[in-house]
Amino acid sequence: MAILSVQNLTLRFGGVVAVSNLSFAVEAGTIASVIGPNGAGKTSVFNMITGFYQPSEGRIRLGDDDLVGRKPSEITRLGLARTFQNLRLFPNLSVLDNVKSGMHSRTRQGVWGAIFRTGRQRQEERLITETAEACIRFVGIEEYAGRAAKALPYGAQRKLEIARALATQPKVLLLDEPAAGLNYEEKEQLIRLIGEIRDSLGITVLIIEHDMGLIKRISDKVTVLDYGRKIAEGKPDEVLRDPRVIEAYLGREEA
């Protein structure tokens, strides 16, 4: 069953068509990827799904909920979390406080509870801390828990962003170029981590990525975009052999 589906999605900026009549579906419990050359419209698709851009046309559904027209915070509450292509952490806050942000939409405590430190408030604070710590352990950066996010090595910052997204307890996790800037060892860890997110947490993953090696190894399904259109879709091996895909990436061979 498709947990996330996009139908006839179009995005225009003035006269420029960034995404054109795009449809695809992500099956629950799988890892799906969207690939394509620079400027193909991948991040625009992500921004529409997460509510940061409003599509000009089309529908986006998460389970039974329609996502178009909702605020990003509402979409997160409905069970969709994301990371950003260029890391968007809370740089001066500790790793623990960064991850706690994910629990905001899963808890309710308000001004009253905070000022009077009610029993329910303290109970919720404990839950927030425990969940955040579990997410930090899951991605394997517990050694940095007390440090400011900006003081972490780059690879750990990438993992922190994933931990923060996991703390929102999503049904679907969107990763925007998670391997960008990682070295070989870190990429291997990332591949294992994404696999575990699907297998042991049961979260569906949608990835935008440039790194073909990574896509090939972990995707159950690949959708290829070029100039805002879908040009191929299917299992990674088949898709990457598709002449249209090769042409999009390498250009046409002159006869």
């Binding site: 940061f52 997160t76 950003f84 939409s105 929102t168």
Partner: peptide, 13 residues
């Protein structure tokens, strides 16, 4: 710290 990231984490800014 970062309005957009906060919104993405489910905080109605």
């Amino acid at each position: 710290e970062d309005e957009d990231a906060a919104e993405a984490m489910g905080i109605d800014r």
